[in-house]
Design a protein around this nucleic acid. Structure first.
Lengths: 151, 151
DNA sequence: TATTGTTATACTCTATAACTATA
DNA sequence: TATAGTTATAGAGTATAACAATA
């Protein structure tokens, strides 16, 4: 998308406009920060979904991320091609692929998470730490309306 | 995008994830609210950019919105087809098209803005009025880092 | 030469439908 | 019959390149 030169007050008060451009900017910062580690924002999402959990099928991972299983195929193709995840058939149900981070995947994830944290810090620069925390909580509350008790 | 069934804590703390899904949800609510008025969210954006201003060229309107001039062509084709905007050559520079809301466009805009406000209220339901105001301010501050003095 | 609107084209992200292999 | 992974395909949404008219 083209860079906006300043939308005027009618638009900049628009919530969908603000959310769209906030997302675009955060995604841009994130991808720049992740580039040296050879992964993209969506791939980081997949790796996070796989991390620290019992091994999952592709479909379970897709549901976790809220993406289609057909989308997951291409994402895993890329990650497997980089040696960051492994796929192998589930012994108990051979229709399924068990997907896991490789050792290289865990190491890349560690570096990528650090880079992501740094990108978030850069994004939140205009806010006080208090306001930044509240922004995260407010977003969580509107995205998961049932679960606004935990932050 | 598929509806997420719950992403787990690693992902739901992710700022880019929260912003993406917040935007998707707000856009969905907005388009549902606008549908009875025959316009889409992006078209509302264009109409807002045109409203209450001196008449603009297509390129000026595109810059105002942060979209490409080629994207603006199709948006204006649709709005003109619905009789909501008019295009005519600028007498002073005949390369330009002056774009304006029609009377029907102003009326539709009025209704669409009311529907948009209602959709925003629905979106912000999980937040206190205070938290909702702070969310808007925080988004404004991160999207327009130079202008966080005005809210 | 540069700019505006336009068209043709392509790229990214995503989903739907249909295939296969298993169950 | 139903499900998991895959492939082919299509639809948004967006951008880049090239063209005609005008400056």
């Amino acid at each position: 998308m083209a860079r906006t030169d300043g939308p005027g007050p009618e638009l900049s008060g628009n919530l969908v406009y603000l959310l769209k451009h906030a997302h675009l900017r955060m995604a841009e910062l994130l991808n720049e920060a992740l580039a040296p580690h050879g992964v993209e924002g969506r791939e980081l999402g997949v790796m996070l979904a796989l991390a620290g959990r019992a091994p999952m099928s592709q479909q379970q991972a897709a549901q976790r991320l809220g993406i289609d299983r057909t989308t997951m195929v291409a994402l895993l193709d890329a990650l497997e091609g980089k040696g960051l995840v492994s796929r192998h058939p589930d012994a108990e149900d051979r229709r399924r692929n068990v997907v896991e981070l490789t050792e290289a995947g865990r190491e890349t994830l560690r570096l990528a998470v650090a880079a992501s944290d740094e990108a978030e810090r850069a994004f939140l620069t205009p806010l006080t730490p208090e306001a930044a925390r509240e922004l995260r909580e407010a977003l969580h509350a509107v995205v998961f309306p049932g679960r606004d008790e935990d932050a």
